[in-house]
Design a protein around this nucleic acid. Structure first.
Lengths: 232, 232
DNA sequence: CGAGAGGTTGAGGACCATCAACGCCAGTGG
DNA sequence: CCACTGGCGTTGATGGTCCTCAACCTCTCG
């Protein structure tokens, strides 16, 4: 499995890792690069937050255990995404991150991030902006869960992945789906069966083509129309 | 209507407004206090973010328009809560805040907050912590919407309000409900009718008592059991 | 009093969860 | 090579939950 690898320049953490363009004299933000095998956890829910992370290669799921064996999947991480920021409130990770495939991750110790934030104003601003951006995203996702039907949830999920791959310079029309149907369901508040039925329906309409572990979006306009329908 | 007023000491923004306990020489964080009448907007969705806010008295709803006339209510604000932080990502408010009753609000201009964050390390940390805390809360709310039935959503909503009033030194068992049933529904992903039915059901079981614009929680244990919240 | 907003209650139906069976594929071991 | 196995995905039947639509109630205010 050869996972895609991001250039640092298009990473969400770039301006945090390299705050002084061309300059030096500061300690590196990134302490270490870690490799994760499929299924391995980057950090655990309830564990003290020691670092924040940037995904360099591979994909992960960020999930919140519900105390009864179940999980809600908060978001999926693609190369260039930041992770672990929600622990900056209490110093404890409320969520956990699990590799969906073999991954490579940059680790920025919490203390080091704080030193940089104190010493370089732009770093503090970048950090705030990253967290606020995830906050806005989470609010949008809540709205999706609260007000939209199954088909619209799946359509938006696919379009969101499409946009994010596009932003990274990869195909917006064809990409892998490394997560299980059940994991898509845990992200969208649906069952595995409902996700499967909606995807089958989209395929029968000719809007997508499903292949093992991947998907092709054939009719973005139809998907967008489907995603734009507000419920009620 | 005499709204409850917070002491600054128990405000979420306190360590941002008064970073140097006992010291001075810095400009005040708070530029102005604004009064809002019921229905008035503190800031509008899509407007450039000029400031962040702390609620001093009264309650508000923070809502995200869905582009088709509908709204999803992201959270309700009580005295001492911070607002407008989700605009720190792009400089534009993705949501809007509307007063549910007459309110008093402290306004901290964005620029001033940034100057303080640059000059005083703890201010930057407090800001990060506030945003991250809202992020964690939003993720929990998403999980609520994705995985829980109507009764559990309403029970957790009531217990959440109860805890927050308790943290502020007010009764955890009896408080006003300044929002409409339809607004509770827009927050919980339910219709007004469903909210009303669940509340009526709770009342018929003797768990709560509803009076006009207020509620008394009579059996917190039953509500907790219904909400499936592990006791702390 | 009448009007209107907010809230409650009821009947019926849509949507999605649940339960169950089956197909496909990869890996394993005979 | 094949059978076996288990994980994953698909599809069908059925039922429950909550939405929709509608009527009615309560309270406030002019």
């Amino acid at each position: 499995m050869t996972a895609l690898q991001m250039a640092c320049g298009s990473c969400a953490m770039h301006r945090l890792c390299h705050p002084l363009t061309g300059a030096e004299g500061w300690l590196d933000a990134v302490q270490a690069r870690r490799r994760l095998e499929r299924g391995q956890k980057l950090f655990r829910a309830g564990a003290p937050q020691a670092a924040i992370f940037a995904v360099r290669a591979g994909t992960l799921k960020v999930s919140a255990p519900d105390g009864a064996g179940g999980h809600f999947i908060v978001r999926f991480l693609l190369p260039g995404d930041a992770a672990g920021l929600d622990g900056l409130a209490g110093g404890v990770h409320p969520t956990e991150a699990v590799a969906l495939e073999d991954c490579q991750v940059c680790e920025i110790p919490r203390v080091r991030a704080e030193i940089l934030a104190e010493g370089i104003p732009t770093v503090g601003a970048v950090l705030r902006s990253l967290i606020a951006s995830q906050l806005a995203g989470s609010q949008v996702h809540s709205a999706l869960l609260a007000r939209h039907a199954a088909g619209e949830r799946v359509a938006r999920f696919l379009l969101d992945l499409s946009r994010r791959w596009d932003e990274r310079g990869y195909s917006a029309a064809s990409f892998r789906l490394p997560m299980l149907r059940s994991e898509i369901g845990e992200h969208l508040g649906l069952t595995m069966e409902s996700v499967s039925r909606v995807l089958s329906d989209f395929q029968s309409r000719g809007w997508i083509r499903l292949t093992r572990g991947a998907i092709a979006l054939l009719d973005l306009d139809q998907l967008r129309a489907c995603a734009a329908i507000p419920l009620r």
